[in-house]
Amino acid sequence: MREIVLDTETTGLDPLRGDRLVEIGCVEIFNRMPTGQTFHRYINPQREMSKEAFDVHGLSTEFLADKPVFSAIAEEFLEFVGEAPLVIHNASFDIGFINAELERTARTPIPRERLVDTLLLARRKHPGVSNRLDDLCSRYAIDNSHRTKHGALLDAELLAEVYIDLIGARQSQLILAERVEIRVGTQADAPRRQRMEPLLPRLSESELAAHQAFVATLGDKALWGEYA
């Protein structure tokens, strides 16, 4: 099954108040394993960056000034995600911004039925504790030491690793690999079992005599003559 792990960065917290997307990062996974295929774009939000948002991701108004606007990358983005489920941490935040941008370009919003919210999954599996992405990386021993600031592609890559552990897919793969190794090893290395006593012959004396008489009619050069 194909899934897309997705993360965004924005100019603020509320698309209804004019905040815009500034970065999208996507990681493709197939049968719960990253394929190496990614989608990553910076986006010109056509507005000033708030100080609070800049402190989070470090993307300045000046840096984004020459980047494409969302309408220029919308089709490429939609083509990459296709109809796959979207795996997002705190999905309502990201999809709110994505759908606001799609609506601005007269495109169909992404339905919420396609979303897999890893924050909700984490809260069910680890209730009563913090389930931020950094916390989950620490919990599952995923190296995030290079994450000094938020970044859409980096966070999507980390989330893909977290998601695989969160749903137990990595453990299942290890168990399967172990079973395959044991099964192959048994076939290749196990000694053949020998019967304590040989089986009794299943042919009667008359059947053996009839067979030998038939083989005799095949001539001395017949292959069966070597086994008569």
Rank of each mutant, 00 (worst) to 15 (best):
R123T: 05
P109W: 07
L199G: 10
I29G: 05
A72N: 04
A213F: 03
P85E: 01
A156Q: 11
L102T: 02
A228V: 05
S204N: 06
A156Y: 12
V69M: 13
L133K: 00
V162N: 11
L21C: 06
E197S: 10
A74T: 13
E75M: 04
A156C: 10
S145Y: 08
E79P: 00
H40Y: 06
R202C: 06
D7T: 08
F77V: 03
N144G: 12
I167E: 02
D143Y: 11
P15L: 00
R32E: 15
Q46S: 13
L16W: 04
K67T: 04
F97S: 07
L218S: 01
G219A: 08
K221C: 01
M1F: 07
L133M: 05
H40F: 04
P85L: 07
L64G: 10
F80R: 10
L86C: 08
V87P: 12
P127M: 12
E9D: 03
Q171D: 04
A122Q: 10
A53W: 10
K51W: 11
A84V: 02
L115A: 05
L154V: 12
I95F: 01
I24R: 11
L200K: 15
G58H: 09
L13N: 11
I29P: 07
L136T: 10
A65G: 03
Q46P: 00
S92H: 05
G185I: 00
R123V: 09
Y42N: 06
H211Y: 13
T186I: 08
R17A: 14
D66V: 02
G151D: 15
M49K: 04
V22L: 09
G25H: 11
G36H: 02
K149E: 08
D117M: 06
T118I: 07
I182M: 11
R193E: 13
D220Y: 08
L176Y: 11
M1E: 12
K51N: 10
L121T: 04
R41T: 14
L136V: 08
D94M: 07
R2Q: 04
T186L: 14
Y140E: 01
Q171K: 15
E23Y: 02
P191D: 00
Q173C: 00
I24Y: 01
A72T: 03
S145D: 09
E226F: 14
Y163W: 12
L166M: 05
A228C: 10
Q187E: 15
F70Q: 10
S145M: 09
E101I: 09
G36L: 08
T186H: 14
G12Q: 05
H40M: 05
I175Y: 07
L199A: 13
Y227H: 14
E52R: 14
V184K: 01
